[in-house]
Amino acid sequence: MTFRARHLLGIDHLKPDEIVSLLDLAEDYVALNRRTVKHSDALAGLTQINMFFENSTRTQASFELAGKRLGADVMNMAVSQSSVKKGETLIDTALTLNAMQPDLLVVRHPHSGAVNLLAEKVNCAVINAGDGRHEHPTQALLDALTIRRAKGRLHRLTVAICGDIAHSRVARSNLILLGKMENRIRLIGPATLMPSGASEMGVELYENMREGLKGADVVMMLRLQRERMDGGFIPSEREYFHRWGLDAEKLAMAAPDAIVMHPGPMNRGIEIDGTIADDINRSVIQDQVEMGVAVRMAALDLLARNLRAERGRMALGEV
């Protein structure tokens, strides 16, 4: 098993064999999570702090559960309501926390690059739970695990990522991961929601969703991120749904066994038709949530192993 990283800040710095190692370990945790007694002592004695500078329910719950099932002492800090409001800078918050000797820090922040900045200031392992519109690595990993389980492989697949790509860190991380694993990626959406420079990213761009979905093995829908928009990207939700919302007619263009994914939370009737989201033959949206816990357990476990090894080397005076 190879996983060398000290932090999990993004997919960008992971090698394909590290991704595979993490997914393989996550498979074990899927099995564990399906047992009645869902407990391991992999993180026993370690302290995990979840620091969410941005409101989150599902990701925070997923990380909390992952830590607890591995026996860590987990603490949630809703930073958006506390010290930041009193004027403390990100670095001061980090130093304060660092003084409490945590081992694993899970951070979400509304600004791109903020988690990297924080990781430089603390001496524990940091997991990026989403920074601005930059990366969301555990989402891409859980998507990868979901795809691998549904399709039997994670390479040579045609993956269509649809919707609000410009504002999506999920899209960025997936783009990098699926690219590293040698898949064919298509980005589909209105021109206003395409990131600039997309044409140089080694992907195929489609304005027309029917064209873009032709023969796709995986259809990955994204949420329309209205909170990250400063207005004016699309004229109306009804026009958006008409052109870029996933409905049965558009999905019929994809491969007959194509799976439908969505990182959640969904806007039914805006980017996805409710009946598609609920179709157990096509939709793997609930599987994604399940894989999320397992992937986060694997990530916490691997980082903790590296942390222990590093501390061991330090104790021996090797570093």
Binding site: P190, A191, T192, E207, G232, F233, I234, P235
Partner: peptide, 14 residues
Amino acid sequence: SKLLSRCMTYARGL
């Protein structure tokens, strides 16, 4: 100008 640029981008797509 920002709104106009978005209108133009969206229109280009269509």
